[in-house]
Write a protein that binds this DNA or RNA. Structure first.
Length: 552
RNA sequence: GCGCCCGUAGCUCAGUUGGAUAGAGUAUCAGAUUGCGGAUCUGGGGGUCGCAGGUUCGAAUCCUGCCGGGCGCACCA
């Protein structure tokens, strides 16, 4: 609808331009958007004010001239000039109502756009090390990454969701040692020192380890025992992570193992290649990548003096595979504490011959918890949720996802556990889900009364001209542009906020208007509206990975 | 010291990328239903958009400098 209006404005401008001889065929970058105040109309444009600067004329005069061009236009009910030179357009209501046919026609795909034109995009997220269960911070990253991937897919991109597993290196050795120490402790040999990973979960891992290998593994040679412990622990923890994510309704297409990069030799060969190109040099026995020239604070070590490659070395090889897989955009979702890594990775992309602009890093800020009126930083405290598992068990996947997606990921957020748990009107998740359930309930009621849902072509759309109806229609037709906004800004919270507004308008409409009534023509047209609304809510929730229940 | 994010109502946060009189929820106070789900709806009070400059027709939004909070500045990952 917005596009239709824009085209009408452009047409009017061109005609006026020819007639007045301004010699400016291009109207420039003007804005067409719904005004904040409903009384101003359906859309407004700042075209006249943009032109005023260029043409050195008064904005209001220009606006008057432009407005006159719409006098006998069938699209608009009114075109007015207001304020410093805004033009406000009000469409004939029937044009709005007709748009509803698009919603019911597109049904499950309403909201999809072709913004991305099928371009390949990777979204890499979570990528937590398999050294312990996911915590709440990972959960926020998981929700944001998953929703963002879904948003981009709805916006017409060809999306790959990927989890990069750091399943090799020092931390894996530490994990193996911790497992072995806990296992020996369980077998009656007290530990002489704290294990590298101290979490309680390591005791469970150790017990399962003994169960699988038998107690004799504990007396095996250190090398053998350690190798077994390392592999068992990482696999078992990874399995737990996969299960947590699955229960959190988060899906991945590819699980990419760091180990395979080393095993295939691509880390070493890439270092060799960059050495030849002069992008890596040797100093004090170590190999350094010249990231300093590319905006990083300084150059970075890729191979230590002791011959062991760093994490960065593997990350170079990993991002090389992303470039080789020909993604046009590489989205990485990281915790905010990794922000120092951004210029480094951009430099890496440059060194690999890629365009650093391709790399889009979304930093997700920290989560703190509020429970029983008290705030907790995300440190480990007794009685406070720390793992993703705990919070989804306690609060439920839908509510946790909604809460994580409700706020801009740029802001630190406080997770109100009591609010998320409450099954009341204060809880925004239920507010939205309830709106959907209500729509479904209306259809159930109609069915019981023997009122069949009308076919769209049979509906008299000219009946949908009430204020409440038009508000609702205008809002629900915005889903595609909200999806695009969320895709362009890489911010899922636009959708959450939008759905809340849609739900609010519906609850208001529902309170003041009856859908199924004695008036069969009106009933039919309103049922068509409610169907379009139900589709909008369902698709919006679907994008966010949140259930749209038919009953609650 | 350098860098990134944040600072908007008592609290938690939006603000369509520079537009018109700055908005929700919550808390608080006062109300609404003999019909489709009260998990709903209506109204009131509540603001120096951290501070100070600048850019222009127009700034919560862009630029500069301060102040405050968080997080980073490894031959860890």
């Amino acid at each position: 609808m917005r596009i239709t209006v824009r085209k009408a404005i452009e047409k009017a401008y061109k005609e006026l331009n020819d007639r007045e001889g301004w010699g400016e065929a291009d109207p420039g970058a003007f804005d067409v958007s719904p005004p904040r105040e409903e009384k101003f109309g359906d859309f407004s444009t700042n075209l006249a004010m943009i032109l005023a600067a260029r043409l050195k004329k008064k904005p209001r005069d220009l606006a008057e001239k432009l407005a006159a061009a719409f006098l006998d236009d069938d699209l608009f009910e009114s075109v007015e000039v207001a304020g410093p030179g805004f033009m406000n357009f009000r469409l004939k209501p029937v044009h709005w109502a007709r748009e509803l046919s698009r919603v019911s026609g597109e049904a499950d795909s309403f909201g999809r756009t072709d913004l991305g034109q099928g371009e390949k995009v990777m979204v890499e997220f979570v990528s937590a090390n398999p050294t312990g269960p996911l915590h709440i911070g990972h959960g926020r990253g998981a929700a944001v990454g998953d929703a963002l991937a879904s948003i981009l897919a709805w916006a017409g991109y060809d999306v790959t969701r990927e989890y990069y597993t750091n399943d090799v290196g020092l931390q894996m050795d530490n994990l193996g040692r911790s497992t072995l120490m806990r296992a020996r402790e369980a077998a009656g040999n007290p530990m002489e020192e704290e294990p590298p990973y101290r979490g309680e979960y390591m005791k469970d891992v150790a017990r399962a380890f003994i169960e699988k290998y038998g107690p004799e593994i504990l007396s095996a040679p250190d090398d053998e025992a350690l190798t077994a412990a390392r592999r068992f622990a990482s696999e078992s923890i990874m399995e737990g992570i996969r299960k947590d994510l699955a229960d959190f309704n988060v899906r991945f297409d590819v699980w990419y193992s760091e180990k395979t990069l080393h095993d295939s030799g691509s880390v070493d060969s890439l270092i060799g290649l960059l050495l030849e190109k002069g992008l890596i040099y040797e100093q004090e026995g170590a190999l350094w990548l010249k990231t300093g020239e590319q905006g990083d604070e300084k150059d970075r070590v890729v191979r230590r003096a002791n011959g062991v490659t760093t994490y960065l070395a593997a990350d170079i090889a990993y991002h090389k595979t992303k470039l080789d897989r020909e993604f046009s955009t590489l989205v990485n979702i990281w915790g905010a504490d990794h922000h120092g890594y951004v210029p480094r990775m951009k430099a890496v992309i440059s060194a690999l011959g890629g365009d650093p602009e391709k790399l889009v890093v979304r930093l997700v800020q920290l989560v703190s918890l509020k429970k029983g009126g008290q705030s907790y930083a995300m440190s480990t405290r007794e009685g406070v949720f720390t793992t993703l598992r705990q919070i989804i068990d306690e609060v439920g996947t839908d509510a946790v996802r909604y809460f994580f997606l409700m706020r801009s990921s740029d802001s630190q957020m406080e997770f109100d556990v009591d609010l998320a748990k409450s099954q009341s009107s204060e809880n925004p998740v239920y507010y939205v889900q309830y709106a959907h359930a209500r729509c479904c309930s209306i259809f159930r009621q109609a069915d019981e009364k023997g009122v069949a849902e009308p076919r769209f072509e049979e509906v008299d759309l000219s009946l949908l001209t009430g204020r409440d109806e038009l508000r609702l229609i205008r809002k629900l037709l915005q889903l595609p542009e909200v999806v695009e906004l969320a895709a362009r800004s890489f911010q899922p919270h636009h959708i959450t906020g939008y759905l809340y507004e849609v739900a609010g308008l519906f609850h208001f409409f529902y309170k003041h208007n009856r859908v199924v009534s004695e008036d069969s023509a009106l009933t039919a047209s309103r049922m068509a509206l409610i169907r379009a609304l139900q589709i909008t809510l369902k698709n919006g929730l679907e994008i966010l990975g949140i259930n749209a229940p038919e009953k609650m």
